[in-house]
Amino acid sequence: MTTATFEDLHDLMSTMAGDEKHREAATSTLDALWVLYDRVLRVTPEMAEDRDRFFLSKGHGPMAYYAVLAARGFIDPAELRRFGAFRSPLGMHPDRALVPGVEISSGSLGHGLPLAVGTALGLRARGIPSDVWVLIGDGELDEGSNHEAIAYAGRVGLERLHVIVVDNHSASHGWPGGMEKRFEVEGWSAVRANGRDHDELEAAFRAPHPGAPRLVVADTGVR
């Protein structure tokens, strides 16, 4: 099913029933996830050691993630029907030990970016030229652990590290001046893009940012 299109994702997502309470969170990430897996990431189900890494830090609402993984051949689409069942590998928060293609187990907020800093450092130490991508939510950015990672990654110029913040404008106290300002002051390259426009997202993802880690704010327009 690796020839799947973006339109196929809606059918895949609709097979996941249950009382998932983060449906909006799931659909807000769908476009960014698809552009990444369809156009940007160097990763296949074989999970080669020099693959790019994608960490879904915002583990809430993983339906879009599961749908994309199914569309790209990492998991059997038939498995989606058992989403949330006791013996299903597909839970409300992804588990890397259960789901092929899932790089980190997430759910508790504020862990993906600090983990990604370590992975980017580890890959660099091993001489493996892979990019590391993390998707977090704008509300998740509140977690202090993210700010330890943002400061460190910027100062040491981890240029293979990329953060996508899906901005649903849901952070309780907001980000005065925009999230970009918070990252830029620490030395990141930062840009805001229309989170529903695939070409704009791809351009933002592919733009060069020598010597600095990269932030792309994917603004969904949801308020």
């Binding site: 370590g118 992975t119 330890e148």
Partner: peptide, 25 residues
């Protein structure tokens, strides 16, 4: 590349250790 000081950031210290291990270190 293998002797890393994170500053006074202990959450990052542990998370980065996890991330390094995920990368085979």
């Amino acid at each position: 590349d293998r002797v890393l000081n994170f500053g006074i950031r202990e959450q990052l210290l542990i998370s980065a250790a996890g991330g390094l291990a995920l990368a085979g270190m």
